[in-house]
Every structure is written in structure tokens, then in C-alpha cells.
Design a protein around this nucleic acid. Structure first.
Length: 549
RNA sequence: GGCCCGAUGGUCAAGCGGUUAAGACACCGCACUUUCACGGCGGUAACACGGGUUCGAUUCCCGUUCGGGUCACCA
């Protein structure tokens, strides 16, 4: 048996047998309908928003069905690996609520189907590779990079229908075993290739969970299974790992769709039952009227860390992703404001097969909806945490007055039937609250059109703020002042006979508002003044009045 | 270029043989309001094109166009 000698030469180390591995990783004992899914990132340390989306859908699928969601680190390409990549990836994922049931957790690994890091599964891949070789379904290839690129060029000239390593182009396919043994012994580098069973003009059909039935030509290529360093390619590792880890549903990005014929062939060659596939469309970005994939290089918002830095609550990003996952989500959310994502009646089939544009404007709206119901203290705590990481100056200012920001943010929020919905990210809090802090306050004095400088001076000169006043008394005082100065006591009155008045109360309170806050638009002024304190309110009014003369 | 996927308002999208073609975001307007924001009401705006099939196509089929993906010892 020439294959036996070849296999022994190529894989001299002792390896487990496929049977042993099958026994070591038995079928999972899960209830009917439970799905096993996974997220399999490369440890580049960079978490793409699209990857988060994919991970989220995987997790959701498992949770909704009472299955298992695990994480597997695909570190078969050392060139891409980044120091500390796994750790930062796990951290980002956790921050966004992606917490695998199995696999890498911070510093440890859980689950009975490990190891969950591909670089530690070498023997497992080799075992199946050797088995394939033994059964004549794989062969060593000694072609060098140069030879391969020559081949490509040749095919270019010949106008070959199908490019790549196959058929007559696959020079090492029928290398005699003794020659292969000799060359390997000589130290020639080799890769292990699949001896593809694909037949020209034959097609393969499968059902994609989101796209439905798909038909494609069979895979003809003798794909590389093991690289020269003995490490598997993605394709081979996918087949071995997802079989052994008993993945039921492979949910991944659209870009993998084209390699399904290869993957199916691999599963079949190895004698594995193929999983179900779901290819979800990539998140796109609008540019020059065209859609294109969010690019790690060109688009800062492709990185999940960008949203964190901007101060979007991670939960808001998830909520937005849910909107993309299902158009019914928003209605469901309105009906179930506090329900967990996994309670949503989610199915892969209802996902859109076309690529969605990532809409930052919509995210803002969703995020406002997430922040609005937070009590002032909670929002203040979160904004404070954010500031400590991304706005040190603000953090220091906040630290000097513990509890102050909570009071500020409680205005129009705590106990309000319609809490303010004007903050979309923690990064906006600084601007939102700036006039409450003397170090951030800019004493500008914008005036409504209907108010002249002289009138403004009169208003500020005569206005007397007292912290003792309840809201009604406080406003009554402003109303009286308005009437005294020739302004209508109510907007309605003014609208009916505009000629009789200079303006209405609103104009008068606008002047006070401007003096106290430096802006024309703010939350409830009475509340603001109470938080500011009588001393500062009076000082600001005096300061503004002085500027007018 | 081969293969594959996709196409409903500006965006996300329901609908999948007969509908006044939902809803959300954005935008505009109205009312409310001491400002703003929220909430409420109303409005502008869509089935890519051409052929079939059918009594009838946004829905089914075929082409076209456009967009996307893929053709590595990267994943």
C-alpha cells in the first residue's frame, strides 16, 4: 500500500485516529431544535462592526433555541496575529454582551470540545489529514510559490475557464508515492492538497438558511488543506472543528458563500455530516451613491471601538443591530421595552439577504431611546465612566463635584412621563451640561429677535431670583415682570393682538435663560436654577446685565 | 472575465398573484408648550428596465442593467 508508506513518511509522529477523536468529542446531548453556533475570529485585536453583527446573530440563534454558542480562536495565520489580540477581542465582545458559553473566557477556557484555539489543535487536523492521505483523498504538493504564479499566468493566456490548481494543472496530483517520499525526505517543502472529487459541469445544491436554495458548480480545485508549516487552512480547519465541536449551524458572513461547495466536499471526504449554513449579508456603507463593505482601513466606524469612544452605549449598538436583523424588532421592542434580545422571536429565515447600509442617523435615534429612560444617576455614572476613559478633563471636573452631574441629568428625566430624548451618546454630555460648570460655562447672551438690548437690560435689571420660590411662584414672578414691561402674560394673548405687546412671557424668560445658561434652548429653567443655586444664578444675571450697558 | 448573491421611498424594511403598497429613521408642516427635547397629528417620497406566464403581476420565469461577493499556503 503506497499510501501507507507515504503517510508514515509525511506524518511520522504518533497521532490519534479519527475514531479516537470521534469518541473524545461525542455528539452533544441537547434538546430537539437546540442549535450549536459559534463565532470564530482571528486574533487581530480588531473587532469589526460586521464581526460583532455576525457574533451577535450566532449567539442569538443559540440562545433562542436553548443551544450552545462557543468561541473558537482561528489563529492559523501567524502573520495576522497581534500580541494580546485575543484578550482585547474578548474584552470588546463582553462589553457588547457577547459572552460565549464555551471556549475562551478571560484567562481560561471552558467546554468539553476544546481546545478552542486552533494552534493547539494541530494533532487533530493532522490526524484527519493523514487519514485523507491514507484513503487517497489527499496528496502532497511540492509546487513552489513561483511555480504556482507561473501556472496562473499560463492559465491567463490560455483563457482557462476555471483558474486554479486542478485537472492537468495539478502537477503533483499524480506524483508517484516513492517520488513524493523521496522529495519530502530531501527536505522539500510540501502542502497537503485535497484530491477534489469535483466533476466539471456537475452542480451541487444546498439550502442556505437565509437565502434558500442555492445551486453552484461543484468544487474542482485541489484546495490546500495543510500549509507547509503543517497548519490547516481555514477550509480544512472549518470542516474538522465544526464537526468535532458539533456545530449545527454555521452562521458567517456572505463572503464565504462561494466556498460552500469546497466545504461540503470536505465534510463528505472526511465522512462528516455537514452543518447547516447561513450566510448573512455584510454591513455596507454609502459612498458616492454606491454601497460598499465597511472597510477597516477607510472607515473609522468599522471598528467597534469607535462606537465606544464616541460614547454610544453598547446596548444601543446591539439594539440597532437588532433592527437590522429583523424589521419587526422595533414594534416588538415597543411592546416589550425590557425584554431580553433572546426573547425576540428570531429566525434566520427572516433576515434580509441584501446588504444593509449601516445608518448612523438611525443609530442615533435608537441610542437616544436607550439613554432616555435612564435615571439621572445612572446616566451620570455611565457618562462618568466614559469620561474617565475618553475625556480626562471632564472626568476631573466631575470628580470635583460628586453627585452634581446626577442632579443635572435628573432634570426633565427622573420621574418625567416623557423623559428628555436629546442625548445620543455619553460624549454629548459635556456639551449638554457645560453651563452648569463654571469652568465650562461661556457667558454668551443670545437674545430672541423680539427683544432689544434695552429691554433685555430692563428685564435682567428688574428680575429678582429667589431659590425659595416653588415653580409656580417662580414663573409667576417672571410673568408679572413681563406684564410690567409690556409683554403679554401668555403667548396666546400675544398671538391674538400682537400690536398691543412687545412680545410675550416666553421672550422674557428667554432673556433670563440666556443670562443663566448662555443659551436660548435648555431643559426646564426653574430646575436648572435650583441645581445651580441662588448665588450663581444671581451672579450670572448680574454679569449678563452688566454686559448690556 | 467565470461563478454566486442581491435589487420596494434618501435609509432600514413589511408584503410574495388581485393591497388606498405597512411601519421605523430622516425631512417638511400643524397643534401643544415660557425655550428646547419628547409625545400627538398630518405631509412629501418607492415596487430598476425589457420580455414572457396569467383574467390579473411589486410578487412567478427568462433576459438586461446596476450593486455586492468570490476565484491565496488570509481568514
Amino acid at each position: 500500500m503506497p499510501n501507507t508508506a507515504l503517510a508514515a513518511a509525511l506524518f511520522p509522529n504518533s497521532l490519534p485516529t479519527p475514531e479516537e477523536l470521534e469518541a473524545r468529542y461525542p455528539a452533544r446531548n441537547l434538546p430537539e431544535g437546540a442549535r450549536v453556533t459559534r463565532f470564530a475570529p482571528s486574533p487581530t485585536g480588531f473587532l469589526h462592526i460586521g464581526s460583532l453583527y455576525t457574533a451577535f446573530v450566532n449567539q442569538l440563534t443559540a440562545r433562542v433555541t436553548g443551544g450552545v454558542f462557543f468561541l473558537r480562536v482561528e489563529d492559523t495565520d501567524k502573520k495576522r496575529e497581534v500580541e494580546g489580540g485575543v484578550g482585547s477581542l474578548l474584552k470588546s465582545l463582553a462589553a457588547f454582551g457577547i459572552v460565549p458559553d464555551e471556549g475562551q473566557a478571560m484567562g481560561a477556557e471552558t467546554g468539553a470540545y476544546g481546545p478552542y484555539t486552533q494552534s493547539r489543535r494541530r494533532d487533530i487536523y493532522q490526524a484527519f489529514a493523514k487519514d485523507l492521505l491514507l484513503r487517497g483523498l489527499a496528496y502532497p504538493c511540492f509546487c513552489t510559490e513561483d511555480e504556482l504564479s507561473d501556472l496562473r499566468e499560463e492559465q491567463e493566456h490560455e483563457g482557462a475557464v476555471q483558474k486554479g490548481y486542478w485537472g492537468k494543472w495539478a502537477r503533483c496530483r499524480d506524483l508517484p508515492a516513492d517520488e513524493a517520499i523521496r522529495r519530502a525526505a530531501n527536505g522539500e517543502a510540501w502542502v497537503l492538497r485535497l484530491r477534489s472529487s469535483g466533476v466539471a459541469d456537475k452542480r451541487i445544491a444546498f439550502t442556505d438558511e437565509v437565502r434558500g436554495k442555492i445551486e453552484m458548480p461543484e468544487n474542482m480545485l485541489d484546495a490546500v488543506l495543510l500549509k507547509t508549516d503543517g497548519v490547516p487552512t481555514y477550509h480544512f480547519a472549518h470542516a474538522v472543528d465544526d464537526h468535532l465541536m458539533r456545530t449545527t449551524h454555521v452562521i458567517r458572513s456572505e463572503e464565504w458563500l462561494a466556498s460552500v461547495p469546497l466545504h461540503l466536499q470536505l465534510f463528505s471526504a472526511c465522512g462528516f455530516k455537514a452543518p447547516k449554513y447561513a450566510h448573512i449579508s455584510a454591513l455596507m456603507k454609502q459612498e458616492d451613491g454606491n454601497k460598499r463593505k465597511l472597510s477597516k482601513r477607510k472607515d473609522p466606524e468599522a471598528a467597534v471601538s469607535w462606537f465606544t469612544r464616541q460614547g454610544y452605549p453598547s446596548y444601543a449598538v446591539l439594539e440597532y443591530l437588532m433592527c437590522l436583523i429583523s424589521s419587526q424588532f422595533e414594534d416588538w421592542r415597543r411592546a416589550n421595552p425590557a425584554a431580553l434580545h433572546e426573547a425576540f422571536p428570531f429566525t434566520l429565515k427572516k433576515m434580509s439577504a441584501s446588504g444593509a447600509l449601516f445608518d448612523p442617523v438611525k443609530l442615533i435615534d435608537v441610542s437616544k431611546g436607550v439613554i432616555a429612560p435612564m435615571p439621572g444617576a445612572e446616566l451620570a455614572a455611565r457618562a462618568g465612566d466614559w469620561a474617565r476613559e475618553f475625556d480626562r478633563q471632564l472626568a476631573d471636573i466631575l470628580a470635583a463635584r460628586p453627585g452634581y452631574l446626577a442632579q443635572i441629568l435628573a432634570i426633565d428625566r427622573d420621574g418625567a412621563k416623557k423623559p428628555r430624548k436629546d442625548i445620543s451618546r455619553y460624549g454629548e454630555v459635556r456639551e449638554y451640561a457645560s453651563y452648569f460648570f463654571d469652568e465650562l460655562f461661556t457667558p454668551e447672551l443670545p437674545l430672541p429677535d423680539s427683544v432689544t438690548n434695552a429691554d433685555a437690560a430692563a428685564i435682567l435689571g428688574e428680575y429678582d431670583y429667589s431659590a425659595e420660590d416653588g415653580k409656580d411662584a417662580w414663573f409667576g414672578r417672571i410673568r408679572d415682570l413681563a406684564v410690567r414691561l409690556g409683554y403679554a402674560a401668555a403667548p396666546r394673548e400675544y398671538k391674538e393682538t400682537p400690536a398691543a405687546f412687545k412680545g410675550h412671557v416666553g421672550d422674557v424668560s428667554a432673556v433670563i435663560r440666556a443670562a443663566v445658561t448662555g443659551r436660548l434652548n435648555t431643559p426646564d429653567l426653574w430646575s436648572i436654577c435650583r441645581v445651580l443655586g441662588e448665588e450663581r444664578v444671581r451672579a450670572r444675571i448680574a454679569l449678563a446685565a452688566a454686559r448690556l450697558v
